[in-house]
Amino acid sequence: MQTAATPALAMLRLLGGYQISQALYVVARAGVADRLVDGEVPVAELARATGLRPDALARIVHVLAGEGVFAFDRPTDLVALGPLGRTLLTDGPESLRNIALTWMETHYPPFGELWHTATTGEPAIDHHFGMPLFEWLARDRERAATFSGAMGDFARAIRQDAFAAVELEGVRTVVDVGGADGAVLAALARRHPGLRGTVLDLPHVVAAAPPVLRAHGVDDRITAVGGDFFAEMPPADCYLACFVLHDWSDERATGILRRMHRAAAVPHARLVLVETVLDRGESPEVAALLDLTMLGMLTGRERAAEEWRALLAAGGFRLDRIREAGGPACVIEATRVP
């Protein structure tokens, strides 16, 4: 990867970030990385296989080679995967391909309206598309499916260490609030054979959960329920929410917490959150960028430790501890105050 020699050149690289993002979108959408798994390929052959124009592909690959995505030998026109290339494979443990597609199709256009957000406080996406993010997603099944896939990529990329640190010993029933396709709760259920639970999310989102639960062999203990967590919450002795509260303003997030508080099956129900904590954890730059995403796309924000403490208290929970988990995300543990 190249390093700028002067502040002006460093700034030029930052200002050109939108070009890098769009170049990544093109190669992700075309499936370029998938064609390079078995080794280097000439640009002309790669272009034919992906439907791209050879000259355009060569110039895009040249730029992305400087970012470590590809290795490109200009004299021979041979392209190979670079250190970051496998993150754009369609499948794989490190794949971020769905994020490359979603961010450019869903996030990129609204972020052209960030000035509007900075001067009015209205999320850029509301201004650009005329409606909030989740309402806009719900209007197109394919768009919603790509977004769900991106959230799966996101889970693998920055939450996996935190998931491994979630402790549910002694818990009998758990509700995964906003649990999407159920992959998180399914993995936890495999670790805890006596655990029973519910994946709760919007109907069009949680529809993807039953096959995931079956594949993990936990569909006899974990069920998928379509619903609105602002309006309803199944009873449980533990609630799990992974990157859910950060989507919402303090007022709306407090409403979710109070709904959990009212629905809890036991007086001292547990609450486990997986979220970034701005003054804790590794990769603070990732948390800061995620906070900027919240600014443009939703009404929420990333929060510091004391902000989490205050939010939990407003919802009827006592913050017990925040555990760093070796990545950007932390595990936040709290207890219901009767």
Rank of each mutant, 00 (worst) to 15 (best):
G326M: 02
G170Y: 02
A265C: 10
R59N: 15
T87H: 15
N98W: 12
D220R: 11
L292I: 11
L81Y: 15
Y239C: 03
G194S: 05
T299K: 07
V32M: 07
P93C: 13
E167A: 09
W308R: 01
V63E: 12
Q2D: 06
E135P: 05
R53E: 15
V206F: 00
A215F: 03
A145S: 10
R309N: 10
M233R: 07
P211Y: 03
L96W: 15
L168T: 03
V79T: 14
V272E: 00
A164R: 09
G315V: 00
E167W: 08
L57C: 13
A183E: 14
A47D: 13
A155C: 12
P54W: 11
D77I: 03
A23T: 13
T146R: 13
A207Q: 09
H116D: 08
V37P: 03
P267H: 12
R35G: 10
G66S: 10
L292A: 14
R258M: 13
M294I: 01
V27M: 05
D201L: 01
E302F: 04
V266Y: 03
V174P: 05
L133K: 05
L78F: 15
D73S: 11
A209K: 03
A215I: 00
H62R: 10
D77K: 07
A80Q: 12
A165K: 02
H192E: 08
S283M: 07
T173S: 13
T102Q: 12
A215Y: 01
V37T: 08
A138G: 14
A314M: 02
D153R: 02
V177P: 05
H128A: 10
A186P: 03
G178Q: 06
G179V: 08
P193K: 01
A325E: 01
E232P: 05
M151C: 14
A287P: 03
T146D: 13
V337Q: 00
A44W: 13
V175K: 04
I158N: 10
L15H: 04
E275R: 11
L188M: 06
T293C: 10
W248Y: 15
G92N: 14
L257V: 11
L311T: 07
V166Q: 02
H128W: 09
D91C: 15
A269Q: 05
G149Y: 10
A224L: 01
A155H: 14
A187F: 05
G149E: 10
N98L: 09
R318P: 03
A23P: 07
G82C: 12
G197D: 12
A236I: 01
T276M: 09
L273K: 01
A118I: 04
A310I: 02
V184M: 04
T102H: 14
R139F: 07
A329D: 10
A304H: 09
A118V: 14
E251V: 08
V199Y: 00
F154D: 14
